[in-house]
């Protein structure tokens, strides 16, 4: 058998176009000649390699782009978080400490069920970056902290008109919406924040999980909770809630 005939037989076998007689010939050849057996093994490897590599270039490049974005977002968030730790701890620290105290003091997770009211802990609104809109900010803070969420929504919405990307306004605006059962609008706000790289990224994820819990979408809630990284502020609570779900 010439090498040409041998390769053609290999090809027929690999592409499933081999007749039973030729298949028998090839099997005999492979069984009796280790060199041919090895050649056939490499031939099959090539076929599989070419099929995969010459075909999937578009899919692979789409995945590469997506991985680049996900990687960049992950590493940027890491470094942003570090900066935030340094710059914003004075304002955040109090809010965090206050939330933890409230959480520990008020909620007894072992007794409560997996409900929104058992797990939500609304942080106090204390706008950290003052602009020229002090009057409006003060009204928003007063309304929010006195739980007049419909009023706070209006003021925060006013503030957002001039500063639509302000993640702090957006986060608290989202809370006013959840508290008023405007769940769909709240989701839009929180999902938007999650996709960004602000310090509210994971707070927004946590609140979106609570938003889903409030609507009794338990599966979706659990999916979101699993996305919270271990170093997120609400990680422990998320784990508690996951256990109950």
């Amino acid at each position: 058998m010439t090498p040409e005939e041998k390769y053609e037989l290999f090809e027929q076998k690999v592409s499933g176009e081999i007749s039973s007689k030729e298949d028998e010939t090839l099997s005999l050849l492979i069984d009796n000649d280790k060199i041919v057996a090895e050649e056939f093994r490499v031939y099959k490897e090539w076929s599989s390699y070419l099929d995969s590599n010459l075909n999937s270039t578009q899919e692979q490049s789409d995945l590469e782009n997506n991985l680049k974005e996900a990687g960049a977002a992950f590493f940027e968030t890491k470094s942003t978080k570090k900066e935030i730790k340094v710059i914003r701890i004075p304002s955040w620290g109090y809010a965090v400490a206050a939330s933890i105290v409230i959480i520990l003091g008020v909620y007894t997770f072992s007794k409560g069920g997996a409900t929104y009211s058992n797990f939500v802990s609304i942080p106090e609104l204390s706008i950290t970056e003052r602009s020229g809109e002090d009057g409006l900010i003060k009204k928003a803070e007063e309304a929010f902290n006195s739980k007049s969420y419909n009023v706070a929504e209006k003021y925060l919405s006013e503030l957002l008109k001039n500063d639509s990307a302000n993640s702090e306004y957006l986060f608290y605006y989202g809370i006013t919406l959840v508290e008023q059962d405007k769940n769909r609008e709240a989701s839009e706000v929180f999902v938007n924040l999650q996709q960004g790289n602000s310090g509210y990224k994971y707070k927004a994820l946590w609140f979106e999980a609570l938003n889903q819990l409030k609507q009794e979408n338990m599966d979706r809630c659990a999916e979101l909770l699993k996305l919270l990284p271990q170093d997120a502020e609400d990680y422990q609570q998320a784990q508690e809630l996951l256990k109950k779900l």
Partner: peptide, 13 residues
Amino acid sequence: VRKKKSLCIGQLT
């Protein structure tokens, strides 16, 4: 085409 394909993969092998 089939023969040529098999020869090319044979060459790679």
